[in-house]
Amino acid sequence: MKYLLSIIIAFFFVSSNAQQLEKSLLWKISGKGAKTSYLYGTIHATCDSLLDKKVENALKETKQLYLELDMDDPGMQMAMMKDMNMKDGQTLDQLTTKEDYDMLSNFIQENVGVPLGMIKTIKPFFISAMFIPKILDCPMQSVEEHLMKIGKRYNEEVFGLETVEEQMHVFDDIPYKDQMDELVKSAKDNLANDKKEFQEMLAVYNTHDLNKMLEFSATAENKLTSKFESQLLTNRNQNWIPRIEKIIKTTPTFFGVGAAHLGGENGVIRLLRKQGYKVEAVF
């Protein structure tokens, strides 16, 4: 449950014609009075969350761990449940034809084991996340959980760059009809395209090439992130920058956020550079 937004965003990368970045998921932040900190591009659902030694060394050098959310907060799941429903009493059956709703209802029952009528007020994006285990087709692992495990070894407290409410409200800014259309499309082809694109995305991520991650979305069939880049990535990146600046002025920090947030003209790396910080790849 706590990985819903992050996992979905991890499927897709936003295209950009910005200058190429070096191949690395780990970046060192310094200069302008900052305590030396690190920025790491994660993937939120994978078959192998094993981290490189250089990542562990970066965690060892820092004093605290910031993820997109404070993932060891015991109240996180309850806060997420509170904002999962669509606004204004909307329901899934209002967003598509009766034929497609009935098809989706059967698909959800068969693949998730939940009657669609019981969850028909939930934002469609979050129902899509219920398919992740089937799409991944392996025991799901999380890079964030691995980072937290290593951080705990070095007594690092975990914090979040944004609140659950901020993340959840992203999907009130994306029309529910667009979310529903993608959900129906996934069900109609029995997740075939989702599985194919997820495996392709994993392969791209394993190259550590942020530029290829950006190019990936150009041919992806799911259009939500390219159509709503501002809501899913750009606005959030811009909100994070003053928060990151405040944090690194006082404490050496390891930041772990979805790799989709790092690259591009509006990615965290270039936004920090524009603020005068030195952000360099760690090879």
Rank of each mutant, 00 (worst) to 15 (best):
Lys134Met: 05
Glu22Trp: 03
Ile247Phe: 03
Glu157Lys: 15
His44Glu: 11
Ile108Thr: 01
Lys28Arg: 04
Leu5Lys: 13
Asp137Ala: 13
Asn193Ala: 13
Ala129Cys: 08
Glu22Gly: 04
Ala45Pro: 05
Lys223His: 06
Tyr205Asp: 10
Leu262Met: 04
Thr36Trp: 14
Met148Pro: 07
Ile248Ala: 09
Asp102Val: 08
Gln77Phe: 14
Gly267Leu: 01
Asp102Thr: 08
Phe125His: 07
Leu262Arg: 00
Gly276Pro: 04
Gln19Thr: 14
Gly33Asn: 06
Tyr66Met: 12
Lys149Ile: 05
Met84Leu: 15
Thr219Tyr: 03
Ile119Asn: 05
Pro74Asp: 11
Glu68Thr: 05
Arg153Lys: 15
Ile122Met: 13
Met81His: 13
Gln199Ala: 09
Lys134Tyr: 11
Leu21Phe: 07
Gln199Ile: 02
Ser128Ala: 09
Asp181Met: 13
Leu92Trp: 01
His169Val: 08
Met1Val: 10
Asn57Ala: 15
Tyr101Glu: 00
Asn106His: 01
Ile241Cys: 07
Arg273Thr: 06
Ser128Met: 07
Tyr277Asp: 04
Leu59Ile: 07
Glu197Trp: 10
Gly258Val: 04
Leu233Tyr: 07
Gly31His: 03
Asp88Arg: 00
Ala34Val: 08
Leu232Ser: 08
Lys53Ile: 07
Ala79Ser: 13
Glu68Gln: 09
Leu92Cys: 00
Thr36Leu: 06
Ile174Cys: 02
Ile9Thr: 03
Ser226Phe: 01
Phe171Asn: 06
Asn155Thr: 02
Ile108Arg: 03
Leu161Gly: 09
Asp52Glu: 15
Ile7Ser: 14
Ser217Asn: 14
